[in-house]
Write a protein that binds this DNA or RNA. Structure first.
Lengths: 208, 208
DNA sequence: GCCGTACTGTACCGCAAGTATAGTTAATTC
DNA sequence: GAATTAACTATACTTGCGGTACAGTACGGC
């Protein structure tokens, strides 16, 4: 009794990951059942265990996919901003503006960060997944920090500032803005926080 | 076969709430089992259902307890800061400094925000709990906003700023700082972000 | 025509959430 | 000092999920 597959073969794994991400951001990892995922993906439980050894393997694949997508999206955005402007400060400010616009134009299904979700459920996962998550955050710190180093040599800040903390502030504001946006059901909060961060960077480094 | 209660009667409910908060911040709500809580609290499953009609009722009690504690803690801190200083800007800056010091002195068991945790699992809860969570966030916005209104009348900001967004920024940075601190296992991140926020507020409103 | 990929089908185990209901103990109230 | 009430215990059950095991099958590429 084998019916025709609803879509071409081999894409069930990707469908599972997409469905899992949505469900985990809405309910958390433990509350997301394998049965629910396979039903929505149109496959059977055996199909799930063909692609993923267990639920932990699914979690790792979800996180890797999320981190890669995120990195690609923002790399693309900031490299486009750099092309528009040679000055490191103005290029970064343009990038932040573009980022805020991108966030403001997101569809209304409430966005969330899988890394944040995992971090509030980290005892469910093994050390490898926690390390991947930490590495993702450190990656953002390094990327932003190297920009600030270039900016600070040309525009000395008004007052001494910890460039690591300033880089972390971007990540923190995005994570916090997502939480506020979800809790208050207001999609304007996240882009607003990014623009405030932009104001802070401008104030810190701007020449008088 | 009724043994002596390990502690005096009536405090099992409080023990359950404390244990539940710790477990939920580490594993999420769905992964926190009733059996595990009652075993740690030294009571039976029936005892749990005497205090809470079901798991959702536990969630509501946890959130109410968390929001009340948080509010009391910060109200106390900022009112002490106000007593030390009549000027609204300087009083607020002192309060932020004290807040950062309080966060830096927290014991090393990693802190988290129950509201943030709930917000990434909100489909597990009913509308009442989601509304409580949103109201908690709005409350912080109103509290900080009224301070900024007082500050802005005496110290006009360098550039026009959305006071709601500036108030939300405090909440966002705390939530984001908690996430970064947990993910990177670094307790210095959160107080550092609070001090950066303080720098931003000072830069925005300071007279030249 | 064969092999590997991507599955299906069936059957099962153990654990946890949650329900139901009757019974017990200790302090409080009258 | 008897009755009441708060704060539980004890036992038994249903449902659903994670995970295991394993045999079978449809299809595309070589």
């Amino acid at each position: 009794m084998n019916h025709l597959p609803p879509t071409r073969r081999g894409e069930a794994r990707e469908r599972l990951l997409e469905l899992a991400e949505e469900a985990v951001l809405a309910k958390g990892f433990a509350a997301t059942s394998i049965d629910e995922l396979v039903a929505a993906a149109g496959i059977t439980k055996s199909g799930f265990f063909y692609h993923f050894r267990d639920k932990n393997t699914l979690a790792k694949a979800m996180l890797l996919r999320y981190l890669e997508r995120d990195k690609a999206l923002l790399d693309d955005l900031f490299s486009r901003a750099d092309e528009l402007n040679e000055d490191p400060l103005h290029g970064f400010l343009v990038g932040l503006k573009m980022f805020a616009e991108l966030l403001a134009d997101l569809p209304d299904n409430y966005p969330g960060c899988l890394a944040a979700s995992f971090c509030y459920q980290d005892q469910l996962f093994d050390a490898e997944i926690r390390a991947l998550n930490a590495e993702g955050m450190l990656d953002w710190r390094r990327r932003f920090r190297s920009r600030f180093e270039a900016i600070a040599t040309r525009y000395p800040p008004w007052e001494p500032v910890d460039l690591d903390a300033l880089a972390d502030m971007a990540t923190a504001l995005v994570e916090g803005g997502l939480i506020l946006g979800r809790a208050l059901n207001d999609s304007r909060i996240l882009p607003g926080q990014v623009l405030l961060y932009r104001d802070f960077v401008r104030l810190l480094f701007q020449t008088v």
